[in-house]
Design a protein around this nucleic acid. Sequence first.
DNA 1: ACCTGAACACCGTTCAAGT
DNA 2: ACCTGAACACCGTTCAAGT
Lengths: 181, 181
Amino acid sequence: MTRDRVVEVALELLDSEGPAGLTMRALGAKLGVAPTAIYWHVGDKAALLEAVVDHITADVGEVHVGGVEPLERICSTARSLRHNLLERPYLVAVVHHQGRTAEIFRPARLVLAREFAASGLEERDAALAGEAVLHHVIGSVLIEQQVARAPEQRQPPEPSIEPGELFEFTLDALVRALTGC
Amino acid sequence: MTRDRVVEVALELLDSEGPAGLTMRALGAKLGVAPTAIYWHVGDKAALLEAVVDHITADVGEVHVGGVEPLERICSTARSLRHNLLERPYLVAVVHHQGRTAEIFRPARLVLAREFAASGLEERDAALAGEAVLHHVIGSVLIEQQVARAPEQRQPPEPSIEPGELFEFTLDALVRALTGC
DNA sequence: ACCTGAACACCGTTCAAGT
DNA sequence: ACCTGAACACCGTTCAAGT
């Protein structure tokens, strides 16, 4: 029983049971310990969620930047970020609930601003362009996840648009527009 | 005490106290009635939330489309949608929790696809372009709201980028890229 | 038809008490 | 230092009982 172990098991519980399943009692049971023992190691549930999101933030921050020219590096950063966000099903909801959505984008934000600057934009425009790409990524992921677990949606959003294809199509148009190619 | 009255007061409670404050007990108290009376009119809390989101969906769906040429109509639709989404602070979170994010975009989606088609794109490309604009709107709103109520964010996302300005900048670039102007 | 009250199973949390 | 158990205030929900 260490703080790291508690957070680790909390993440497992989150992945398997969802946010509603992550209760102090269930977590205690999975740790083989009384629920109240958690309070000694990590504090209350707010502190636990902070720690969980700390871990998630670190994971999401590890964006893989490939390619050599700025345009390709921008696109690969966006793809990597999207991939990281789609990995954990409840990631966006939990991070949003903690009010830390802006925070998890920091590493990608820095890369994007740098690469847009390298593509010829001046500092402020590069920052704006980077933010635009982030908006596109989070918007895509949010809607993709929602469409996936929609209730009995009367009809699919559009006749057979595959999410990945849609993402690539739009990313390409957006980045070309922002860099002025 | 009618079903509509219950939903109406539930929306008030949601706006004033947030999602955590919307409890059957608090709702009963505000209605001057026992919490269990709600069950007779609207069913359980899941049914209540469905009804609340029904109402929100109708509100968000009322997008104002201005201008005459397609490009201006697309931008004004996006602005109107953004405005509607920003109006209620907990809208995005509640709708997302109900798994109905894709649904609230339906009216705007139809308008956007139609206008992109009018601008010269063929049907499928018009649908893709419309979806891209929706991604941009939801992404912008999500991050804007999060930055607004971030905890003790160490530093603001970027040196003084006003959200509205950022939205306009990116929307313009995106739409011009998609329509090929 | 409409509402109340008691009751139940579940939360998060505190705190004295154990080792 | 680390954990347990009982207890408390809060949830959503059911259901018999009232009018």
